[in-house]
Amino acid sequence: MNSISKYFSDLFRGISSLWAGMRVTGKYFISPGQIVTQQYPENRATLKMEPRFKGEIIMPHDENNQHACTGCGICEINCPNGSIEIITDRVPNVDGKPERVIDKHIFHLSMCTFCGLCVKTCPSDALAFGQEFEHAVFDRHKLTKVLNQPGSSLKKEAKK
């Protein structure tokens, strides 16, 4: 007799536990307002990444097309993956003395792991993280970027 009552109590406990699960899914079925999916390409206009989002490394330029990079090479040394290459040039300054300026600050996005060491260690805060995240390209050479804009020069106040 005991085993029979156990049989039925097991059966009903089982059914009620199944019903508890079905209630959860059924509740979500009748409340489509709970849908959390983001309609990604459509919401491009409203989709703003967080200001700290590590999308890519950029070199901010001001309105005079000037940046703060002195070409010291600390970011290149600190990068664990060798994704930064700096090509410097020596040009005479106003006093006629040769001075180091960057020719190209090359950033290989394909090798970057976004550890943030270059941005953190840059002594003149010349680098920053950009919020761009749509990096897919058909040619991987496009992932090698030159960060300093053509014709840009060094910000004077950043030099000291």
Binding site: M49, E50, R52, F53, K54, T113, F114, C115, G116, L117, K120, F129
Partner: peptide, 23 residues
């Protein structure tokens, strides 16, 4: 993402502390 800029692999610690302060 708001605090460290990345969702999964956030190298946020650094010997001695944190990369920067939390948001």
């Amino acid at each position: 993402e708001e605090s460290f800029g990345s969702r999964l692999l956030h190298s946020f610690n650094t010997p001695g502390g944190l990369m920067h302060d939390v948001h």
